[in-house]
Design a protein around this nucleic acid. Structure first.
Lengths: 239, 239
DNA sequence: GAGTGGTCTAGACCACGGT
DNA sequence: CCGTGGTCTAGACCACTCC
């Protein structure tokens, strides 16, 4: 906890909102009151409110005030994991899950034209091509197909792939700045059918991610193929 | 175009980034230079940069500068429709699409316990229950299942449902403040199988949306069931 | 140590909502 | 009209990056 001024205000207000301290009036106190309460500047108060708005908890209306958005037990799920790095959120569970990873493929290849078209990596650069099966509670739930720009990640090993590549990259000083994602529903490929516990289903969810380091370079292209009925993907649209 | 100071700066910088004017150095000019160029305050410059960052175009690094994120023709699709209201983005097409709507169901019902659990609407209030089939270029692509809180939307008619309910609501002064979405891949129901052009596929994408007006009240619960291989869903995660 | 973005303050005026 | 959030200015100091 860095605990800048606005973070303190944000955390305090967030807790009050979730507690229901403000729920009767459906309004946040006006800015001047919050400035007085926290003995802070308007900047800090407004930044805290902006963060609450980004969380989907409040909405500011010019001339009126800051409105609380209704939230019920049912709609809590919409507020969770709004753009967390780890992406897929398991449905209906708070208990600890049992994870296992099978590395199906691990090799270094040179990007050709076809792979470049798909991944946006430049032709000729070396990348790691990795396929991993994620087994969650003994269910073959996710097939990860990764391509990492070897020049940006440094050396990777199969042992790292079994554990967490992201954890390794962070430890080696790679800063993950931004991840862009695209989600689709697709007909299952032969590989999906073979590897995943699809049951009667013949489609998959495909979460395509491209990740950028803090120099703005794309170091990863990943497709995560996942089975139906198990995962969630959240989004918040603000006007 | 309201054209506040920061919007002008934002638009100008955005155009330059997309033009490639800055691409060689992979950096934006430093804040002081932008302040000088636009004869504006630091506030306006920083707000413009923050908007570019929200678009996934740049990333600020304390002590270093504002970095441009790599973008190639392939990765353009990741930048489109980041949280647009209309949600589903049709894959691979810029041409004009031919839309048709069939209203399958249109009735007013009172929320019972089961519907309340699903929609988060209070038991006992009147809602419109609407089912519409969206036919895009003669393909039965999307099945919309809507529930609107009648107390918040005012009267709706089947004729409105054939056209655009959102358009009607906006015209009647309802301000759509926030939409929260959850996307899943699900096994197709009998209704989906019957109505949608699923072909061999036996799954659908389900985009569940809850929408709030500018008083913070949830006025809508909607499930959009859509066929595989046709739609995109974008997300940006920032560190 | 120099350069850069992040936080913070204290003010001002404007635009919108409601009375 | 008053109350409110949105925009904007001019400054200060801090934290981080890079040389």
């Amino acid at each position: 906890m860095a605990a800048t001024t606005f973070e303190t205000i944000y955390t305090t207000l967030r807790e009050r909102i979730l507690n229901g301290s403000y729920s009767i009036k459906m309004r946040l106190p006006i800015e001047d009151d919050l400035i007085a309460e926290f003995s802070s500047s308007r900047y800090a108060v407004r930044k805290a409110i902006e963060k609450l708005a980004a969380d989907g908890l409040v909405y500011s209306v010019k001339g009126r005030g800051v409105v609380l958005l209704e939230h019920t037990p049912q709609t809590q799920a919409f507020n969770l994991d709004l753009g967390k790095l780890n992406g897929l959120q398991k449905l209906n569970t708070n208990r600890k899950l049992n994870y296992q990873t099978d590395v199906l493929q691990f090799e270094q290849v040179i990007v050709d034209q076809a792979l470049s078209t798909k991944t946006a990596f430049e032709v000729g650069i070396p990348v790691y091509a990795i396929q991993r099966l994620r087994i969650i509670d003994d269910v073959r739930a996710v097939l990860d197909i990764n391509y990492f720009n070897a020049q940006l990640t440094g050396e990777l090993t199969e042992d790292i792939a079994v554990h967490s590549i992201y954890h390794h990259l962070k430890q080696n000083g790679l800063k993950i700045a931004v991840v862009k994602r695209m989600l689709r529903v697709e007909s299952a490929t032969a590989l999906d059918q073979q590897q995943l516990a699809l049951g009667e289903n013949n489609c998959i969810g495909n979460m395509i991610s491209i990740a950028f380091n803090d120099a703005g370079r794309q170091f990863e292209y990943t497709e995560s193929h996942f089975i139906p009925n198990q995962f969630n993907f959240n989004q918040l649209i603000r006007n």
